[in-house]
């Protein structure tokens, strides 16, 4: 029973990792590759580590596995955000099929200032950042 759960989790994790790899190869621009890779792989590593925790079933190992999963889940989005933001900053192109870019013209790479947009749901007053 325990082995079956363990094997199923391991296979699920591997599936997501392979899908992430295929996505990194197949997707046409960097932003989609980041989407595919970081998430599929975070999920993949998460499942495999969970399988490891199930396999050993000791408190110490489970705690370390959970800590590693937490770390991966917290840092995955951060590194994805950092790398795609840096890429946008140095002008990595979007795919030609991209239908809309509302950030264009609002980002100044010299000063790193991002202007905000007036949108209808911004109606109430907010404290301005210094």
């Amino acid at each position: 029973m325990q082995d079956a759960v363990c094997a199923a989790l391991m296979i699920a994790g591997t599936f997501f990792m392979v899908v992430g790899g295929v996505g990194v190869i197949r997707f046409p621009d960097l932003y989609m590759r980041v989407s595919s890779s970081t998430k599929a792989s975070t999920l993949g590593a998460g499942f495999i580590l969970l399988s490891l925790a199930f396999h050993f079933n000791e408190l110490g190992t489970t705690m370390r596995a959970v800590a590693t999963i937490t770390f991966l889940v917290v840092t995955g989005p951060v590194s994805a955000h950092l790398i795609s933001r840096a890429a946008y900053g140095i002008g990595v192109r979007l795919w030609e099929g991209t239908i809309r870019d509302e950030l264009r013209g609002r980002y100044n790479p010299d000063t790193n200032v991002v202007e905000s947009v007036e949108l209808e749901s911004n109606e109430d007053e907010r404290p301005q950042a210094p």
Binding site: L30, R33, A45
Partner: peptide, 26 residues
């Protein structure tokens, strides 16, 4: 083709490495 693409690939390689080590541990 660009440097960020390679960084993404490296990141994925690191995560796959984590999977490798965990699977081997099992």
């Amino acid at each position: 083709p660009t440097l960020p693409d390679r960084v993404v690939a490296l990141d994925l390689i690191a995560v796959v490495g984590i999977g490798f080590v965990s699977a081997y541990a099992i």
